[in-house]
Design a protein around this nucleic acid. Structure first.
Lengths: 133, 133
DNA sequence: GGCGATACTGATAACGACAATCAACCTCTG
DNA sequence: CAGAGGTTGATTGTCGTTATCAGTATCGCC
């Protein structure tokens, strides 16, 4: 049986009110700062559950940290992520989907999945970097 | 100054004689089993160096482990990786390169880089899975 | 509303991958 | 061949994540 607890709800809400990807530990301190006496282990569990249920996307930062973000459920999509501020735009890539399957089967591969994410500097951060230079 | 040591060479060779991606720790035990008294820290350093110099590609496994593989230097490419046996095929994707930059600039992003990897079952592993089923 | 079963929570310990340390060592140059 | 300094490696430290387990909260049922 699956139960609804305020902790799980708090994690879902904290995720939804965030623009970009967040680390589990970051989300935990955010919640703590917001007054919730939620435990770190619970945040990890809730995030893992949300990711499995398709309510959150996860990716690994270049330091190997797991980052999470709320996403529109039941829809396959990729991300355009600002390297500086973490701002994330969901992008669709039907052409890339097709290409991936094509390349896979051309090499005899089946059951193809893929990892496609684009990193860059968003307009704001790009301007900031230009002035700082 | 950069020096040539048999340790660094051993790591390079062990990488080259491998079909798929290997973990640092896995490579270390392989070398140890082969008789080299090489240290774990050295393997990590050598792999990091090779990755920076472009002689090796690295990616993160879904458990957050860093995996390495020898690659043709000075050439941007992506990978088609067998989920079961680790067999890896280097693939080129000019279309995807173009698409990535296009999507990025369409959203005001600059300095776009991207992560594109395709996972699947290679012909051999696919056949194996079919007979086992 | 009360009750019992049981899924959930959370402080902490354990774990695994990786980075830092530092004395001993080896490689290159002159 | 000798000196300088980059390199090594056993060990320790760090950090993110997971397992543990007793206590707690939630839900179905009466």
């Amino acid at each position: 049986m699956k139960r609804n607890t305020w902790q799980r709800e708090a994690v879902r809400e904290a995720l939804g009110s965030n623009e970009g990807f967040v680390s589990a530990q970051g989300l935990h301190s955010t919640l703590r700062d917001g007054g919730s006496p939620i435990g770190l282990a619970t945040v990890y569990r809730a995030l893992a559950d949300l990711a499995i249920e398709g309510e959150a996307d996860s990716l690994q930062s270049d330091q190997g940290e797991s980052l999470y973000r709320a996403c529109t459920p039941g829809q396959h999509h990729h991300h355009l992520i600002c390297r500086s501020c973490g701002l994330t735009v969901e992008i669709e890539a039907d052409a890339v989907e097709a290409w991936a399957h094509e390349v896979a089967s051309a090499n005899g591969f089946t059951e193809a999945s893929h990892v496609v994410d684009v990193f860059g500097l968003c307009a704001a951060c790009g301007a900031l970097a230009a002035t700082a230079r």
